[in-house]
């Protein structure tokens, strides 16, 4: 079965205040579809709601209107088993590289956590961790380190490697390179391209860097005042 991730008529309104309610509309009637092996670029200035839309698609936040469909089914109505599958197959990679790993867990612990989540027998953990580092082009010295002791690019790669353990079909990439150095950004982008080619991943690339989006995406949209339009 070919997985699919689709958003239909998504809207998000933030409400604040108990007595005097004030409303802020972030997203209005947004529909999009991610396909395997394809990259959808999403651009917009900061504060335009790009990240919120990403989180809604990843099921981390609830829209106030519209539905997110995974394999044709509304993710709010999935059975537990189907939701677990959705949770594994749709992943989000976050912007700030230093913050995407728990500062008080060593890289080894961070990887072991995910292996435990996947119920992989303990005997294989060591080997799997080393595999992961190798795939990501990282040295095995890193296992003992803490996120504060390695560079931003290395953090970002460990975070991405953890996500890949789940074998996702779709990844929401929220500004994956904007905090990275030029050469590290180039490495990250080529790694993402390789992964897409080898595993047929579908990406939603959220970024304000038009160069990056143009380089990566097959189709580009711009988010402006809560509405989405294709880039001319």
């Amino acid at each position: 079965m070919l997985a699919s991730l689709k958003a239909v008529g998504i809207g998000k309104v933030y409400e604040s205040g108990l007595i005097f309610k004030s409303q802020k509309t972030i997203l209005q009637n947004i529909s999009l579809e991610l396909e395997e092996g394809q990259t959808l670029g999403l651009m917009g200035v900061s504060g335009s709601g790009k990240t919120t839309l990403g989180k809604i698609l990843a099921g981390l936040e609830r829209p106030t209107a519209g539905r997110v469909l995974f394999g044709g089914k509304d993710i709010q109505r999935l059975h537990k088993k189907e939701f677990t599958l959705f949770r594994r197959q749709v992943q989000m990679v976050f912007q700030d590289p230093e913050g995407s790993l728990n500062p008080r867990k060593s890289i080894e612990e961070a990887i072991h956590d995910v292996l435990g989540l996947l119920k992989i027998p303990k005997g294989e953990w060591r080997e799997r961790s080393l595999d992961l580092l190798e795939t990501m082009g990282l040295s095995d010295e890193l296992l003992c380190r803490y996120p504060g002791q390695i560079s931003g690019g290395q953090n970002q790669r460990v975070a991405l490697g953890r996500v890949l353990l789940l074998n996702p079909r779709f990844m929401i990439l929220d500004e994956p390179t904007s905090a990275l150095d030029l050469s590290v950004q180039a490495q990250m982008l080529s790694l993402l391209k390789d992964l897409q080619r080898d595993r047929g991943l579908g990406y939603l690339l959220i970024s304000h860097q038009s160069d990056v989006v143009k380089y990566m995406a097959h189709e580009i949209f711009i988010l402006e005042e809560g509405r989405m339009k294709p880039m001319s």
């Binding site: 981390l60 677990t84 949770r87 989000m92 990679v93 976050f94 913050g99 995910v114």
Partner: peptide
């Protein structure tokens, strides 16, 4: 923080 969001996204 991102690492908590990431943990939620990973399904912990």
């Amino acid at each position: 923080t991102s690492f908590v969001e990431a943990a939620r996204s990973l399904g912990f």
